[in-house]
Deep mutational scan, measured.
Amino acid sequence: MDETGKELVLALYDYQEKSPREVTMKKGDILTLLNSTNKDWWKVEVNDRQGFVPAAYVKKL
C-alpha cells in the first residue's frame, strides 16, 4: 500500500495497450490497483492514466 492506503501492484512484464481501455506498463513499474474483481483484467492507474492490464502480468505488493 502507498501512503494513501491504496493497494499497489508490480508490473512483472512489459505490456503495450491494445485498446483505449488499457494502459501501457513496463516491467518494474509500480501501479495503483483500482479494481481486481475480474480474474483476468485488473484496473490500475499509472502515470495519471486509468485502464486495464492483464492480471497475470502484475503482482500485488
Rank of each mutant, 00 (worst) to 15 (best):
F52H: 05
W42Y: 07
R49A: 06
K18I: 07
V58I: 08
M25N: 00
Q50F: 08
L12N: 03
N35D: 15
S19T: 12
W41D: 01
R49L: 06
L61C: 11
R21H: 13
A11K: 00
V23T: 06
G5V: 14
K43Q: 12
D40F: 15
M25T: 03
V9G: 11
D2P: 14
L8D: 04
N35F: 06
E17Q: 14
E7P: 09
L34H: 05
L10M: 13
R21L: 14
K59G: 09
V23Q: 03
E17G: 15
L33E: 00
N38Q: 09
E17K: 13
E17A: 15
M25W: 02
G51S: 02
K43M: 14
V9K: 00
D40K: 13
L33M: 03
L61R: 03
W41H: 03
A11W: 02
N38P: 04
E3V: 15
Y57W: 06
W41N: 02
G28N: 06
T4V: 14
D14P: 06
K59P: 02
K26Y: 11
D2C: 14
R49S: 06
A55G: 04
L12G: 02
M1I: 13
Y13T: 07
T37R: 09
M25E: 00
Q50T: 12
A56Q: 11
F52A: 03
S19A: 09
D40E: 12
G51A: 03
V58A: 03
V53D: 01
P54T: 01
D40W: 15
P54F: 03
V44R: 00
F52Y: 15
A11V: 10
K43Y: 15
D29R: 02
N35T: 07
E17S: 15
V23S: 02
V53A: 02
L61P: 04
L8R: 09
V9W: 08
A56G: 11
S36Y: 07
Y13M: 11
K59Q: 14
K6G: 11
G51M: 05
E45C: 11
K27W: 03
L12P: 00
Q16I: 15
A56K: 14
R49E: 05
Y15W: 11
K26L: 08
R49P: 00
T37D: 14
G5H: 14
E22W: 03
W42T: 03
D48G: 15
M1G: 13
